[in-house]
Amino acid sequence: MNSFSYARASESPDLAVALLNENQGRYLAGGTNLIDLMREEIETPAALVDISRLPLAQIEEREGGLRIGATVKNSHCAAHPLVRDRYPLLSSAILHGASAQLRNMATTGGNLMQRTRCYYFYDTASRCNKRTPGSGCDAAQGFHRIHAILGTSPHCIATHPSDMCVALTALDATVQVTGPDGERSIAFGDFHRLPGNTPHVETELRAGELITAVDLPASSANLPSIYRKVRDRASYAFALVSVGAALRVEDGRIADVRIALGGVAHKPWRASIAEQMLHGAEPTEANFRQAAEAELTPATPGHDNAFKVELAQRMIASVLQELAEVKA
């Protein structure tokens, strides 16, 4: 690990922003991703600003929805009565990630900003455009069983590893940030980026900006939902493919449907093609399968991860079918 200076900002987000911009460093929350990456010398910040004690650890009701502070622990969010009651998809997605110990450390902001688990990104002897822009991508011709099948680019086929973010995408969340140029909001779907020519630029967050909260709107509360994750072991493993879905049927027609996928793209993937086809349609198995197939038609798998295409299709169709049966 490189040597760095450490400062703690406990009083206010503004203080954290000021400290960071003075020192050209990185924010440190739970540490579960950043400390690991620093130990591997993939990240080498000269300064850390510890934000884990900022007064942003609350979950509050707001405009009929919820505001989840940036330093709320993932475990506290998942167990919070209002989250469990109104946004069970979020609670379930969080609980499907990592381990209980890690969820007791990981924060809302850190979960959004966690980096890919691509092995070549972690291995400093490999070429990686994300770690060293322009150096190449050893995953393309390498072993890429865990890699992306949607929205890939020739420059990077990494996935975003978060479970929580899959639910936040489906629930139309908004990210609240503050920074040297003031406060702003970013729609969750726009927050993470596809790799394109710049896989090292992963989010819309600008240098020095701090996430202060994630908002959940009233419109996505109380929807029947399921989070399903397929992985190499039953617990404590990243997703090969995960699906977060919610479905509301009225008078035999689909009135609201949200589908998001994890483990398939550089960002949590909102299945907009499938959603559009299903909106207003009858909730039948055939319609679910057809929509799932359409969503995966643009997929560009490699030699090791073609299984994800069929897996994602089956998972979308079966989760929606289960939700339709619960309603019936």
Binding site: G31, I35, L48, S52, Q101, M105
Partner: peptide
């Protein structure tokens, strides 16, 4: 009272 992994965090925190 909460369990954590002490390897992935700084003592200073």
């Amino acid at each position: 009272g909460e369990r954590i992994n002490s390897c992935l965090t700084l003592a200073l925190q």
